[in-house]
């Protein structure tokens, strides 16, 4: 739709093609080497690594239950009494007398799940839409090109709708639940992935090795599936890393708007942050813990994604 969004996507595509065609796989290795020297990439990878570790091991690390209201009798909502950090509960208690630290640790997994599933929905559906468009555009003859044109115009229209609005209308349709949040955030990402993958595939289709495969008589479907598609994924994966960060933040926003998980028992940072808004005046810490968790995690994925993009971008690469 808008020039810049499209241009930015196209530049990412260019980066992927150049990385691929210049020296085969070696440029990918070069990017990796460059990333290992970049403090941005290292910080991002460290944060993401730690977050993944907590998400996987969460239930085993957590010292207490994340759901049982073990200290329910020590919390007095109406008098704003929320016991803070202490030896037994490092982050204090939440409004129902549950151990905040355990909820944070256990909640990492749900949060990751929301981000990953949302991203995967966007990625998968976007890949289908973009892939079909590109494949029919490349090999479908005149009709294929028409199909591609129709699909891509629709994608451009969808790109024009602000993402949260799209998510809101989907959420309104499905009713409040964690699934709603994941679907809503994921669907809103489809157009971006579709555009990116299609651009990337078209660029691959014009590269020398595809020409070579065509001249060797490799069937078209095989060229698309086993050559063009896998080689186009580079820029898409970079984008997915960045989308993961957005997805976690957007999911929190939808939870805040009351479209998230209606079950207050489950531990998920976005839901916890949304719930904590009620006690903000008396117990801001209830909001700060999950918020800081979300910010740091999103930061980690953003740093990692940006570092990947920079290391792939031919224009930035030349500078080094």
């Amino acid at each position: 739709m808008t020039l810049a969004k499209i241009e930015k996507l196209d530049r990412l595509v260019e980066a992927g093609v150049e990385a691929r065609t210049a020296e085969g796989g070696s440029l990918w290795h070069q990017s990796l080497r460059r990333m290992r020297r970049s403090p941005m990439a290292i910080t991002g990878a460290a944060i993401v690594g730690l977050f993944l570790l907590i998400a996987i091991l969460g239930p085993w690390i957590a010292p207490h239950s994340s759901t049982a209201q073990e200290w329910g009798d020590e919390v007095f909502l109406n008098r704003n009494i929320f016991p803070g950090p202490r030896a037994e509960n490092w982050f204090g208690l939440d409004h129902l007398g549950r151990d905040m630290f355990s909820r944070m640790v256990v909640g990492a997994r749900q949060t990751l799940l929301v981000g990953v599933v949302a991203t995967l929905i966007g990625f998968a559906a976007g890949a289908v839409v973009g892939g079909v468009a590109a494949a029919s555009g490349i090999f479908g003859g005149r009709w294929g090109q028409r199909i591609e044109s129709v699909i891509m115009r629709s994608v451009d229209v969808a790109l024009a709708i602000p993402m949260l609005l799209l998510a809101l209308s989907i959420a309104a349709m499905l009713g409040p639940s964690l699934t709603t949040v994941m679907v809503a955030v994921g669907v809103a990402q489809i157009p971006i992935f579709a555009r990116l993958l299609r651009g990337s595939m078209l660029a691959q289709a014009h590269s020398d090795y595809v020409m070579a495969a065509i001249s060797l008589g490799v069937p078209k479907s095989r060229i698309v599936i086993s050559h063009i598609f896998p080689n186009s994924l580079g820029p898409v994966i970079v984008q997915a890393t960045l989308v993961l960060a957005t997805a976690i933040i957007e999911a929190a926003a939808l939870s805040y708007l009351g479209l998230g998980n209606p079950d207050p028992g489950s531990a998920e940072w976005g839901t916890m942050l949304a719930d904590a808004q009620r006690f903000l005046a008396g117990a801001p810490q209830l909001a700060i813990y999950p918020a800081v968790g979300i910010i740091i995690t999103a930061l980690g994925f953003t740093l990692l994604g940006e570092a990947m993009r920079e290391s792939l971008d031919p224009r930035l690469r030349r500078e080094q």
């Binding site: 929190a252 926003a253 805040y256 953003t302």
Partner: peptide, 13 residues
Amino acid sequence: IGICTPVFFLAAM
């Protein structure tokens, strides 16, 4: 950090 901070949280704080 600004990009990664949920707007409603910042507003509330």
